[in-house]
Design a protein around this nucleic acid. Structure first.
Length: 932
RNA sequence: GGGCCAUUAGCUCAGUCGGUUAGAGCACUGUGCUGAUAACGCAGGGGUCCGCCGUUCGAUUCGGCGAUGGCCCA
């Protein structure tokens, strides 16, 4: 007889090698065919919603690893919540307007763009954005992310654009919007404002001068009348805009007598500066910077006060420790000016020439005026020492390469303190939003606390216009809810392009007149809105406008850079217009860094592209990676890490494959064995599975995906592969194929396969679906997708803490037995454990009698041919153990009996029946019963 | 320069509400099996818990300073 026909070896076509890169494509096609996303939405449409609102990536370039991390994390949550029965519409979005696209398009157009109309350039930008959206969309779908991909939200959609206008209108109505001055980078060759990204730093030579300001009002300090502050500057032309001098509040300043006058100079630089006046100087007295605040000086050549203020950013490595402040010509100066309510003076026109405001140099270019101003200072004797020429890094225009200036211009702002908004937002951050991790609260609070008013206007082309007009006759601003609403309706139909294609009167309600002069002629504002205003309107444009969504969202999930970005800039207008945050919870993830923790950059050559990983290994590898590390901190990736992920993927896959391969002849209807008839170790495994599920489920609820990875992976290795499944092979292969012992084992395998497949489904989506398709019995009603199934449901009977405790002791004993086996492998020439008889002396109190009850089961646990159990307490003067462990003393005997060629055990009763040569009695019985 | 975050074995993570020899899996080394086989099992080695100072009888854990790396700002 061919005994091999009586051995139930595992059987399956489920491939050991995943070939994910090709198999995943088939699964994506399948999802598309069955319209998986719609199915899932429909299934739960009457249930509680869970809205994860997608933050829009910028529609530029291919997706990078950070995008992949972000979208996969979102997808894991959406899928999990969906399996929990929540209604989970997920609408992906893209941020379409803005400088980077405009920049790129102009670069591609070359000189041609100068002859083009704004509308034509905008069309090119739109084309560019749409093209990249398609590229990125394909990649996101390839990652296995589900969502409304055929109808995503785009910030360039007319419906979206109209919501931006609507939000702006509401802010206008409530009084948040005002026009004010702000310094910006300005190129007077191109006559345009430049964004930070358009500024290049290059060498430039400037005149460096020291200038004295005489004290006019001592603010009750005991100072001589002829006392001066000295400032140092490399931009003499900004002196006409000087309104203050900043000192560091903590620095020590000396009152110095030199050449019959008194000067105030920071301690560390006193010698350096005083020498310029006279080699002979004397320190009279010292003051802290904070004491000198509010002293008033006279401007050296203009009839204007210059007030002493305090600022933390003052340094003492160069200059004098007293910094010339011109809020019209510097960012920091401007902020200091805001704090001290100083005027913003900027007497310079678009061409970089002085205006009437500084009539001495009227019509003269600022750089040319440097000399004239220095001469003026010489004349008034306020120049300290001689001017010097220095080479330093200075901002230049990216386009014309000429040096640029900082110049105050009129800009539109959102007033953050209007109607006590800032305080209310801080309160909302504190009490009404759940920040995960918790420190996110402190981070965004600190930003909101200190942020200046939001400058909304940009002097660009590719964006949403600021819907404001100016009277052609008297220049009065026309900014009203009524006009904005009128425009909004046009935008719904024609998009914001109408602002560029239609005339002012077409864009205004009929009969609109200037409130000041009554004229009906208007000019359109040419500025557009900051792109952050676009994405900050998404909660209105998407959550409110799409009737199947709702606001506030349950969750926003982005990188931690968005505390300053999208989270804050959604929160501000949302609170201003709706009186609440647009999100209930905000979850942040860290950044992707290389294997040594360094940021990725082209120049370092450490950039990892998601496309490469997908093509080489598959999306599930990338998805597994997102759960491998704790994403709340930075996550690293590189070749070694990917290799490890691939290895652990194989382990999980092989474990699942083993389960499947032993269930080939199992029918859940007929063969499922009821719980009470299972063996103890079966119940133990189900109890461990129950424990695992509790752990996994709460980890999903708390978004701790790395805990899920570690738990499942460890479960596969420790509980299953090296223990339960290893032991189970004997029962699966050698018991009668339809015996209750084997069916009991299969019942457990079935429960394991069903539960683990669901547990991994949100993460290893492709693999879970593949398993579901291959072994459809694990799906409750033979649904077309594993994701249509409810979350893991386990029989409450599986929970069994006492059994886990008891079997922990058995595991401890097993570990002593394994050590003994390892020793005897060498000393007694034992190779396979089945060659042995194991004799144990149990050392654990009260366990001995329990062990006797399950002796047969324990024999299989130790995978030996014979087991003898003794109580260590009853052991008399025997110390001849192979291993004497903490839990058991063990002797391993090598059996010289014949090996049964069916079950491979070594037993006395082998080869005793000539009808069944070479096999043991137990095997003969089984063959007689099951394989006649 | 400022705000926030991180730092435990080669890697990814546990953990210690301050208390004996700090854990897991992987990787590594050795080894067994050949009925999960481009699989599976077993055993072993490996850590100044980033550094310094302080609080304490006692610190990897608490506090301060610093280093390195990250994000945001200047």
């Amino acid at each position: 007889m061919d005994y091999s026909k009586t051995v139930n070896l595992p059987k399956t076509d489920f491939p050991m090698r995943a070939n994910l890169n090709t198999r995943e494509l088939e699964i994506i096609k399948y999802w598309d065919e069955i319209n998986l996303y719609q199915k899932l939405i429909d299934k739960n449409k009457n249930n509680n919603p869970y809205i994860l609102h997608d933050g829009p990536p910028y529609a530029n370039g291919n997706i990078h690893i950070g995008h992949a991390l972000n979208k996969i994390l979102k997808d894991i949550i959406v899928k999990y919540k969906c399996m929990r029965g929540f209604y989970t519409p997920f609408v992906p979005g893209w941020d379409c307007h803005g400088m980077p696209i405009e920049h790129k398009v102009i670069e591609l157009l070359g000189a041609k763009h100068k002859q083009m109309q704004k509308k034509e350039i905008r069309d090119e930008c739109k084309k560019y954005a749409l093209k990249h959206i398609e590229i990125q969309k394909k990649d996101f779908i390839r990652l296995g992310c589900i969502g409304e991909w055929e109808n995503p939200y785009l910030t360039l959609d007319p419906v979206y654009e109209s919501a931006i206008i609507e939000m702006f209108g509401e802010l206008v109505e409530k009084g948040y919007i005002y026009k004010g001055l702000k310094p910006v980078h300005w190129c007077f060759h191109c006559e345009t404002a430049l964004a930070d990204a358009e500024v290049e730093y290059d060498n430039h030579s400037s005149s460096s001068i020291y200038v004295r300001f005489k004290i006019k009002n001592k603010n009750n300090l005991d100072l001589p009348d002829n006392t001066y502050f000295i400032i140092w500057t490399t931009t003499p032309w900004t002196l006409p805009a000087n309104v203050a001098i900043a000192l560091h509040p903590e620095f020590v300043y000396n009152l110095v007598l030199a050449a019959n006058n008194y000067y105030i100079i920071v301690d560390d630089l006193t010698e350096n500066v005083a020498k310029r006046i006279s080699a002979d100087f004397k320190i009279i007295k010292q003051y802290k910077g904070s004491e000198l605040e509010k002293i008033i000086c006279s401007h050296p050549f203009i009839d204007r006060d210059s007030v002493i203020i305090n600022a933390d950013y003052v340094t003492k490595d160069t200059g004098t420790g007293a910094v010339h402040i011109a809020p019209g010509h510097g960012e920091e100066d401007f902020i200091a000016g805001k704090i001290y309510k100083l005027p913003t003076i900027s007497p310079v026109d678009n061409q970089g020439k002085f205006t009437n405001e500084f009539s001495d140099c009227k019509g003269i270019n600022v750089f040319d005026a440097n000399k004239l101003i220095i001469n003026k200072l010489k004349q008034s004797n306020d120049l300290i020492g001689d001017p010097e020429t220095i080479e330093h890094q200075y901002p230049h225009c990216w386009r014309c390469k000429n040096p640029i200036i900082f110049r105050a211009t009129h800009q539109w702002f959102l007033k953050v303190d209007h109607l006590n908004l800032r305080k209310k937002i801080l309160d909302c951050i504190d009490n009404n939003v759940n920040w995960i991790p918790n420190w996110g609260k402190d981070r965004i609070s600190a930003m909101v606390k200190l942020r200046p008013d939001w400058c909304l206007s940009r002097q660009r082309i590719w964006g949403v216009p600021i819907p404001v007009m100016y009277c052609k006759n008297c220049q009065e601003v026309l900014i009203s809810k009524k006009c904005i609403d009128y425009f909004k309706n046009l935008v719904e139909k024609y998009g914001v392009d109408s602002w560029f294609t239609m005339t002012a009167s077409e864009l205004l309600p009929p009969d609109t007149k200037c409130e000041k002069c009554g004229s009906a002629e208007f000019e359109k504002e040419t500025d557009i809105l900051d792109v952050w205003f676009d994405s900050g309107a998404s909660h209105i444009a998407v959550l409110e406008k799409r009737e199947y969504l709702s606001s506030p969202a349950d969750l926003y999930l982005e990188g931690s850079d968005q505390h300053r970005g999208w989270f804050q800039l959604s929160l501000i207008p949302s609170y201003a217009t709706r009186g609440r945050a647009p999100f209930k919870s905000v979850l942040t993830h860290g950044f992707v860094v290389d294997e040594s923790g360094k940021k990725m950059s082209k120049s370092e050559g450490n950039v990892v592209s998601p496309q490469d990983i997908i093509n080489k290994y598959g999306s599930d590898i990338l998805r597994l990676w997102t759960s491998y590390e704790d994403y709340r901190n930075d996550v690293s990736i590189g070749g070694d890490i990917i290799n490890r992920i691939v290895e652990s993927y194989k382990k999980i896959r092989n474990t699942m494959r083993f389960l499947i391969s032993n269930l080939y002849d199992f029918n859940r209807q007929n063969d499922y064995v009821e719980y009470d008839k299972l063996l103890e170790m079966d119940k133990w495994t189900l109890a461990k599975l129950y424990e695992l599920n509790e752990k996994i489920t709460s980890a999903y609820n708390e978004f701790k995906f790395h805990t899920i990875y570690h738990s499942i992976y460890n479960f596969c290795i420790k509980e299953l592969s090296s223990f339960y499944l290893d032991i189970l092979k004997e029962r699966l292969y050698l018991s009668g194929s339809s015996s209750i012992e084997r069916r009991a084992a299969q019942t457990v395998l079935f429960e394991l396969l069903k539960a683990i497949t669901k547990m991994i489904a949100p993460i290893l989506s492709f693999t879970a679906e593949e398993i579901g398709k291959f072994y459809p019995q694990i799906k409750n009603n033979n649904e077309s997708s594993i994701f249509e199934n409810e979350w893991v449901e386990l029989n409450p009977k599986f929970q069994n803490i006492d059994l886990i405790k008891k079997w922990q002791m058995i595991l401890d004993i097993r570990s002593d037995v394994l050590k003994a086996l390892e020793i005897t492998r060498k000393t007694k020439n034992i190779n396979h454990s089945l060659e042995s008889r194991i004799i144990i002396w149990c050392k654990i109190e009260n366990l001995y009698s329990e062990l006797l009850k399950i002796k047969d089961e324990l024999r299989s646990v130790f995978i030996c041919s014979d087991l003898i159990i003794n109580n260590y307490e009853e052991n008399e003067n025997n110390d001849n153990f192979d291993y004497n462990g903490d839990f058991a003393a063990v002797v391993v005997q090598k059996l010289e009996t014949k090996k049964c060629s069916r079950c491979w055990k070594y037993k006395e009763n082998t080869d005793t029946d000539s009808n069944y040569p070479n096999i043991c009695k137990e095997c003969i019985d089984i063959i007689k019963q099951y394989y006649k």
